[in-house]
Design a protein around this nucleic acid. Structure first.
Lengths: 336, 336
DNA sequence: TTGTATGCGTTATCAT
DNA sequence: ATGATAACGCATACAA
């Protein structure tokens, strides 16, 4: 491994000069800087991030806290898209990604300890488990953090615009002539609350009176439950003409149930999903859904976290809201 | 931040003693060790990984090289499952995960440089682009590497048992009475070659003579192409009774095409996928597919990489082959 | 503009 | 069994 000392020897100068030249310090002559840079290049120099981190207490790395109850967070397309774009943008900004967990080497370790151990400059928190006290400890630790789809006192956040999303979705369905709209929502999370509120608000604005039994509680990514609830909704005395699902995966459970009952989409019953996963574009009939812009969310999260790190004491957390996009498919019948 | 120096002060001993006690060195008395460990615990001591890495040139971290042409590797369920289980197992073994890319801070950087910069102890290589010279440079750099679904000279590998997978799948279909089996395979990769060979071999063993036009070339995760090829296969003079798809996602394109042609699965045409993604269990009819054990692959990869790192010069690469599991669904008609 | 010297926190060598 | 000390590679305050 070539070090600045070797470059210094090669260039007949001191390590200080090399360090400064390589870091673009202003007090080095242009020629010297150029000469050193060229030598470094030729010798295949790579700084040692550990030494640099030790010296500066900045690691140029972001931690990513990506846990959920089922330990499958990474395999949900919505989250993996966020991670993917967060990673890319972070790397552009000069930060590497390191996962933060609460186990390491067979030992329990708090998220905060893990982060300090690796000297991560900041942490992105994506989790279904914001109730976890370990997460709150981290958010209150002074380490810069940015959360996704959750708002905490003093840290930045990137949210999908669930309010607008529900509004767009419900309005579209209304405009297609539907008045009896049911909503199967996910388990009680911050996101669910916003979506439910968005649903009710939009309905009120549109002058729609939604009977209580039209809004039922299911789970995210659980086709079985949504299938059962679909059955329940369709067997009501006065069934809805359109059912909203918590997400595109849950929709599939509903879809199967509908077919099983000998009904067809959208002739007999209209449907809409949420997320805009790849699968929604592939299925036939093409699913009407609200695409969440996970890619942009990851990008904005990286930028916000970089800002939090770089502005330090001067940082004022921003709450970034990323709008989604309605993807009209063929699952909502035109009743007009 | 509490350092060993502070612990030393607290315990009236030297930093050397603290370091040894914490690392379980044999030349420290049991009482002293215990006293120091307790103090460290109480004071909330966390070692500084940067200092440790600088001193020992071991970072206790694994790099993960996870790139593909479309930059969406992470969003493929198969790969994200591998990553997920690799991460968990690595953390159990005491290694953190750091992504390795070929861009950092707006600069081009080779994978090898990136790995050295972060002092990763080893790198897991998961990629559709094994032709990339940067990857070959890394594999030849002396840094311990383990590849997934690809074999390179001197590094460990974890593969899905594609040969056995195809055998199980084709044999199952044969046993259901099918003799005219078509195979839409993915683009030419190492994996595709094995699957194609497995397909032909199994057919030969079963005494099946597959006409040339039954084996056609599509792409992985491309429902559009597989839809077109499905049409082509079904319009043959002597169409197959069963079509194998490159993967579960591609199958959906075929499924749509089949329905579009007014045919139904499995009454008119039987089908099978590959991968065993969640979606395959959700779709109706339930897809017959070969589940690749991505979770186990990630676990074995972590263990192999840890072994490569820890055995150093004594390491002899292992080629680990992970069997999959046939998931019989309802898409293959019983012709017996 | 350049160089000297110091220390970041840890481990390891060699005395004691 | 314990401690003093050097060194890992780098950045920086300060001297020249």
């Amino acid at each position: 491994m070539v070090t600045i000392r070797m470059i210094a020897k090669h260039c007949n100068c001191s390590t200080a000069t090399v360090s400064k030249a390589l870091n673009g310090a202003p007090d080095i002559s242009a020629e010297t800087a150029e000469r050193i840079r060229k030598a470094a290049e030729e010798m295949g120099y790579m700084p040692n991030s550990a030494a640099r981190a030790l010296k500066t207490s900045r690691s140029h790395s972001f931690g990513v806290l990506f846990e959920d109850a089922t330990n499958s967070g990474l395999t949900h397309e919505f989250f993996s898209r966020i991670l993917n774009s967060f990673k890319r943008r972070s790397e552009e900004l000069g930060y590497d990604i390191c996962f933060i967990s609460d186990r390491l080497g067979g030992r329990d370790i708090s998220y905060t300890e893990h982060t300090r151990y690796r000297r991560c400059d900041g942490v992105l928190i994506v989790s279904g488990e914001f109730a976890d006290p370990g997460i709150h400890e981290l958010m209150g630790s002074g380490i810069p953090t940015v959360t996704v789809d959750y708002i905490f006192d003093n840290c930045g956040s990137v949210q999908s615009d669930n309010l607008l999303g529900m509004k767009d979705l419900v309005t579209y369905i209304y405009n297609m002539g539907h008045r009896k709209i049911a909503f199967i929502h996910g388990e009680e999370t911050a996101v669910s609350k916003i979506r439910i509120a968005g649903f009710y608000r939009t309905c009120r604005e549109l002058g729609l009176n939604i009977p209580e039994e039209y809004v039922v509680s299911g789970f995210y990514h659980d086709p079985t439950t949504s299938g059962l609830l679909t059955k329940q909704l369709l067997e009501l005395k006065d069934p809805p003409t359109c059912i909203l699902y918590p997400d595109d995966i849950s929709y599939i459970g509903g879809m199967n149930q509908i077919e099983k009952m000998g009904l067809s989409i959208p002739e007999d019953i209209s449907t809409a999903g949420y997320d805009g996963l790849n699968i929604s574009r592939i299925l036939r009939p093409k699913l009407t859904t609200l695409h969440q812009d996970a890619d942009l969310m990851g990008i904005r999260a990286a930028e916000e976290l970089a800002r939090a790190v770089e502005e330090g004491k001067f940082y004022i957390p921003d709450r970034i809201v990323v709008p989604g996009e309605l993807l009209p498919g063929d699952t909502v019948k035109d009743l007009r």
